[in-house]
Nucleic acid binder design. Structure first.
Lengths: 126, 126
DNA sequence: CTTGACCTTGTCATCGGCGTCAAGCTTTAC
DNA sequence: GTAAAGCTTGACGCCGATGACAAGGTCAAG
């Protein structure tokens, strides 16, 4: 299939697909006229990338998953490198949550300090 | 005082100060040679900006606080516009926290799905 | 033949908050 | 006198993942 069909089937723009190729995440055969040609395995790969991005992974994060799929694994997340990324992302998310909680207290504290009496409600009620 | 001293006293770069001026957050008199001249109130304003930024406010978020200080208030956060920003930021942070918590479950779920047995009760998921 | 859908490469723009030169003033210190 | 600070404006770079164009080649249908 050509790039337009892959884009439709994977739910991304053609621009995104060319970008993924430029970043080395997908590859394409070229037909005689220079058009990119893809097959079913590319649909799988792009779908995997989008799933990961939908939960906050970057393209670089997705790379080990793509490699894992290419090496024949049924799941992109079953290779050691992918598992490492999963763990790293979970740790990263946990840290972000902690940071945000700390930040929330700081903001609330500044607020209370700058404007005593303004913050009369409890969390989430404003 | 000139820009270098203001930068030192407020703990920012001169580049940052020129940027704030360009964005209309601070102003400067000019001495005969074209150098920017600041006074104590500018130290206060820049300090306020940095305090707000340190807890995740953008420069635009800081604008009402600056205006509030300029209008003579002792605290930049005591004007209605600043209070509105505080409330908005708190709501924003709460939303981000909720999003991250949801994202964490999704990642953990994907992880568990892609690699059964990899996620060994690290956080009481499932 | 022509329209229109699809493809190509290449480049600029986005968003925030600056860092980092560049090239040339002024002022200060010795 | 001269060198080192310090100041000026201007402009490019960065990060991530594209969107939006430009200017053209290709191909099937009417």
């Amino acid at each position: 299939m050509r790039i337009g069909e892959l884009a439709r089937r994977a739910g991304v723009s053609t621009r995104a697909l060319r970008y993924y190729e430029q970043r080395g995440l997908i590859r394409a055969r070229r037909s005689a006229n220079g058009y990119r040609e893809y097959d079913e395995s590319d649909v799988r790969i792009v779908t995997e990338i989008r799933e990961l991005m939908s939960v906050g992974f970057t393209l670089e994060d997705a790379r080990p998953f793509v490699d894992c799929l290419r090496s024949g694994h049924a799941s992109g997340g079953s290779c050691p490198e992918s598992v490492a990324v999963y763990r790293r992302k979970l740790a990263e998310i946990d840290r972000q949550i902690r940071d945000l909680l700390a930040r929330r207290s700081e903001v609330a504290a500044q607020f209370a300090d700058a404007c005593p009496g303004c913050l009369l409600t409890r969390r989430g009620e404003t």
